[in-house]
Amino acid sequence: MIDLLPMFFIVLGALALIVTLFWLWQSLREAVVDAGPLLAGASNGAGGRASQVSSERADLLAEKKALLLALKDLQAERDAGKLSEEDFDEFNTRYRARAREVLQALDAQVGPYREQARKLIASVSQTPAEQVVHIPAEQPAALRGAAARTPAAAAVSATEEHACKSCGVKNDGDAVFCKKCGARIAEESRA
C-alpha cells in the first residue's frame, strides 16, 4: 500500500493537469471568440439585469431593507419587554410612514415600465387597458421586484396557440419551433 502512495499522487497530479488544460482551453476559447453568437446568451444573462438598477434605486432598496429590519426589531423588542408602548408607538408610526414613502417611491420608479406593460398586454390580449390595471394595484410592483414583468409575459403566452403541423401539439403563439418535435411552425406568420 505504501508503494502505491507515490503513484496515487502522480495520478492525482496528472488528473489536475488535464483539468487545468481543459479549463484553460475553455477560458481561452471564451476569451478569444469575442462576443460571437456563442456568447450572446452569457452576456445577456450576466450583464443585463443588475446594471439597470440605478444607484438611486439601490439606495431606496437598502433603505427599505433597513426600515423592515427596524420594524421587525421594534416588534421583537416590545414583545420582549425592552421597549415601552409609547416608544414603540412613536417609532413604529414614524418608521412605517417612512417605509410607505419608500415603497411608493420604488413603485413610482417602475411607473413608466408599468405603462409599457399595460399597453403590451392590451395590444396582445385585445382587452381594454383599464381591466388590466388592477394587477399592480393589488400587489405593488416594487414589492415583487422584477416580477412586474410576469403578468405581461403570461398574457402574451396565453393569447393564441398554434398547433404543430407535424405532431399536433399546441404551442405558444410566439413559438418558432415546436416544443415537442422541433419542427418549424412559424414561417407563415413571421414571414
Binding site: 502522480i10 492525482l12 497530479g13 489536475a16 477560458s27 476569451a31
Partner: peptide
C-alpha cells in the same frame, strides 16, 4: 461582461494548476 465566463474558467484553471504543484510536492 461577455469575458466573465473566460475569467471564471481561468480561476478554475488556476486552482487546478496549483493542485498539480501541491500533488507534485506531495509525490
Amino acid at each position: 461582461p461577455h469575458l466573465l465566463p473566460a475569467a471564471r474558467h481561468g480561476v478554475y484553471a488556476t486552482w487546478a494548476v496549483t493542485a498539480v504543484a501541491v500533488f507534485a510536492l506531495a509525490y
